[in-house]
Design a protein around this nucleic acid. Sequence first.
DNA 1: TGTCAAGTTTGTCTAGGACGTAATAAAATT
DNA 2: AATTTTATTACGTCCTAGACAAACTTGACA
Lengths: 296, 296
Amino acid sequence: MLNIGAVERETGIGKDTLRVWERRYGFPVPVRDEREDRLYPEEQVNRLRLIKRLLDMGLRPAKVVGQAYPALVALLEDSVGQQPEDHPELQKYVQLIKGHQASELRLALSRALLDQGMNEYLSKTVAPLSHLVGEYWLRGDIRVFEEHLYSEQVTVVLRSAIEMMRNDRGTPHVLFATLPGEEHMLGLLMAEATLSLQGARCTMLRGQSPINEIVAAAIAHQVDVVALSFSAVMTPLQVKDGLQQLRRALPQQILIWAGGTGVARQRSQDEGVQLIGPLSDLIKVVVEWTESESPT
Amino acid sequence: MLNIGAVERETGIGKDTLRVWERRYGFPVPVRDEREDRLYPEEQVNRLRLIKRLLDMGLRPAKVVGQAYPALVALLEDSVGQQPEDHPELQKYVQLIKGHQASELRLALSRALLDQGMNEYLSKTVAPLSHLVGEYWLRGDIRVFEEHLYSEQVTVVLRSAIEMMRNDRGTPHVLFATLPGEEHMLGLLMAEATLSLQGARCTMLRGQSPINEIVAAAIAHQVDVVALSFSAVMTPLQVKDGLQQLRRALPQQILIWAGGTGVARQRSQDEGVQLIGPLSDLIKVVVEWTESESPT
DNA sequence: TGTCAAGTTTGTCTAGGACGTAATAAAATT
DNA sequence: AATTTTATTACGTCCTAGACAAACTTGACA
């Protein structure tokens, strides 16, 4: 039995939203305490958690809010669509994640890095594995804490590799950041690893930085490039707006490179903002940059 | 100019609270846009940040809400007692932060760790320096991205030290987590470093985990203890509620240890939840645990 | 000095209404 | 038939103002 504030914390659905759903869709229907405050039974909270997942996948509230639990599960299985069995070579990692074997997972990830080399490692292992883990999470086969376990281990491996390549004299000098609302840092880390390998000087700003902070940091560190990562949780409009605002606020000579799933859906390329699809394009872009600078 | 949702995110003061302060104390007095929605000027947001900090220190709203900026700073200096200048040995770090010299900062931090040893390093350098950086940020002497620069470097140093001490066979097995709403991870990292040193087996869950995720992780990893960190952004009620719910959801034999500024304001100790003040107490608690287990 | 009762402060909850933006459906164009 | 443009609906967030319990302060008394 949770009050409305606790339900907001647990499910990530705002208080206002919970009340408006009750009015519009007739769900959830919490009981009331003696003060007439809402008290949500655990069963409804579980349903709300599932509903949140379905909404995150892009379904509309009208179709999911108010459905009974079995119907929600059916919806979930319908919308998952493609089966993630496509990558047999990644299954060993999935097994380690599900078995909560943190040390073994890190060992396997480290070994793969040294076996494949950074570029192949990122494109053939880390990127598809992250995608796969996301798929499993959507289907409910992997829990949030298991996903955390995975990204924690990848982070450790990549950061120590980046550390080995740190180069305070490298060019270009790149500042890595994400805009507010963007939580996924793995894309940023993969980009940092790629650019470190190319000899760039990398400065990592923590995620969720307001635009004026990014600008101040870029100027203070005298960077050549600001690199941003957008995952699919950001809407195309948010991405476009954010990039435009940043471009306006940043001095002309500092470039912007934007990558990640979120930019793949951008239609038009803005002036002064380099959109980057796959990681391999990032290498191309930095090579071009180096060539354009060297004659100077 | 921020709307009320953005101000809630920036300051940690709830929307309802902001509106009720306006009604009761006549501050803040946001301007309105054409839709009559509140728009808070940056100057008022800065004042609100300071107010939040004073409230977190235990002052009552009637005494601080509505005070002008200089009065707030005076109040802060009164209640802080010691001036930030009281730590001359920490000034060199502050200079490096303000000079954006990331590598030099990390070098200095690493050197201090090896010079002082972990326990003294945490209590004499990291904890007071983090506090000092927070103070400077409140006064506007340090920007957010500079604070990020600092915590990034501390994180790197502590994580690599923890890595060196990793022990998959250690006892107790401790799971580290923060509840939703809690963003500060440094306290958790300091606790992990302390316990690693004591020979514990440490598993780090990323921050902001819903209670059911913490429970699932604790059971899956078969931990002995769940360690939580609360900064001052969490209200005493939120802390109490969260701890109670977690205690109810967690199997009896798994202990809960809670630390950080946020628990210092808790009055009553709940059954089955160990509240921990300074880091040195943490050592005591783990020693007690070990002694109570060894006869078995 | 410590404890208890009465009084005050303060944050969170309640209600329904309003409105802009995002997502869909429909229409018009290529 | 495929794509772009426009109309319509869906949806979350913000608004007002009042109520109440928990936390805090104060003062009386042992």
